[in-house]
Amino acid sequence: MKQKVTIFLTSSFLLLTSFCCAQTADELVKKVKAKMDKVNDYIATGKMKTDVVFIKAPVANIKSYYKKPNRFKIKRDGGISLLPKGGVSVNVSSLLLSDDFTAIDAGQTTINNIVLKIIKLLPLKENSDVVLTTMYIDEKNLLIRKASTTTKDNGTFDMEMQFGKYADWGLPDKVIFSFNTKDYKLPKGITLEYDDGTKKPELPKNKKGKVEISYSSYIINKGVTDDMLK
């Protein structure tokens, strides 16, 4: 009898603890979301660097346009850029677009001397492209410092954010977006290329690509027109 009471009490304690923690994770995500919700729109100016083994591109001057709830557009001056596709665009707000998820506390870690809470977001909708999002949240400043999103169709994306003068708005100064790349090859007969003797690059085994955007300024809540988002 005594043993049964012990098991009951232990189980109840674990259940209560997990319930309590789930609430905390959910609350934390809601707090972060509330902070980011202060931004209705923004125009951000910055530079984009693409690091994909088969793409040779210069640093691009870009402008990002964001409007609540999920409109986001990157434009660049006089040129072409390739941006990784996927459910997650290179934008922090898109991580917390929907409320249809369950937040699970997965402990904490320290990155760059900052203690971060690990929160796993599980989408509730069965047809969601996102399978799992893991966020590393700076609880003190309510900032998402890092996020990793696994999708059904587009593999896993990692986002790393560095914050500076726009941290109060939850907007990063720098976003590093990592993703898996597939092979790229075209028949030589189509391209008729000139062989200048330059060594062809070898694809790395993990085939990770990286896009780095450094924002120099934001214009927040001053209005973004539909034309800007076209």
């Binding site: 088969f54 793409i55 040779k56 210069p58 072409i80 090859k185």
Partner: peptide
């Protein structure tokens, strides 16, 4: 006019419009 994508068999070279 805009930028140019020079598509080769093993890489894509992207040139700025003013270059």
């Amino acid at each position: 006019t805009d930028g140019l994508m020079n598509v080769k068999s093993y890489e894509i070279i992207i040139l700025n419009g003013n270059d």
